[in-house]
Amino acid sequence: MTAGIVQTGSEERPGDATDERGEGDAGYSQQRWWQLLWSNTKARVGIILLLAFILIATFAPLIAPYEGTRSDFDALLPVSGDHLLGTTSQGADIFSQLVYGSRVSLLVGLFGGLVSTAIALVIGMWSGYKEGTVIDDILSFITNVAIVVPVLPLMIVLIAYSEVRGIPLIVFVIGITSWAGHARAKRSQIITLRNRDFVTAAKFAGEGSGRIIFREIMPSMTSLVAAGFVGASTGAIGAEAGLSFLGLGDPNSISWGTMLYQADSQGAVGQGLWAWVLAPGLILALLITSLTFINFGVDLLSNPHLREDS
């Protein structure tokens, strides 16, 4: 069975390059990662959706008919040509709010995901590489504490007590509260790689630990890191919406979470103002779905066996 896989696997391909025939053969090489990602239907849908969101966020001023923060319309106008989804009870245009809200979600998703992934990588990789040493004990202890501490109350407390509100604060809070699970995953992944011969070889080449971890081992885990990042972004987007829904968001900007917060506090459901509640909720679900779909594609990169099944 193994042999069959070896023969078709991308690793060893007879005649990729040989002494004499080398040049010609180099022409067709392995599948590029983006081709692989694109070949998966789910991932393709996810990428198209995410690109649409990014375009909407970038060109929000062109797409939205009004400023997102403007609230000088008549309250509770019905759906019409002027107000595609009507207005809120404070007199804001729901459609414009929705368009501008995508900016916050994407920014928080990007930076929250980056911060969380960066912390997870440094702590998880280092502790896994030093498995069994005091360094690992300390880092694992910190990770375990971070896993055990209930995240939502911690986030609420951190934000409630801080002087300034705003997107950077939310990114920071999400970053430092959500890395632990990923760090654990990275730790176990690096443990399977750190005893590979090429790591020993790097030690014999006189490399230091930092370089071995991030230059030698990490490239072999790129797809896992990418999957971790997409997952962390998804989590960050959800967390931002959740915090804003609880009224802890940035009061000066509009996000889908704050829209939901306002809709809820004004009793939108009771009054039957469905567009106000459903629009931000559904669009949020759509963004998260698109990221999840992308992660299906990323899985294909890290696990070649999945490629044939899709």
Binding site: E11, E12, R196, D197, F198, T200, A201, A202, R215, E216, P219, S220, T222
Partner: peptide, 12 residues
């Protein structure tokens, strides 16, 4: 090393 397939880093 024993196995030249695992002693060279595939990513470098």
């Amino acid at each position: 090393f024993q196995d030249p397939y695992s002693s060279l880093n595939p990513a470098l």
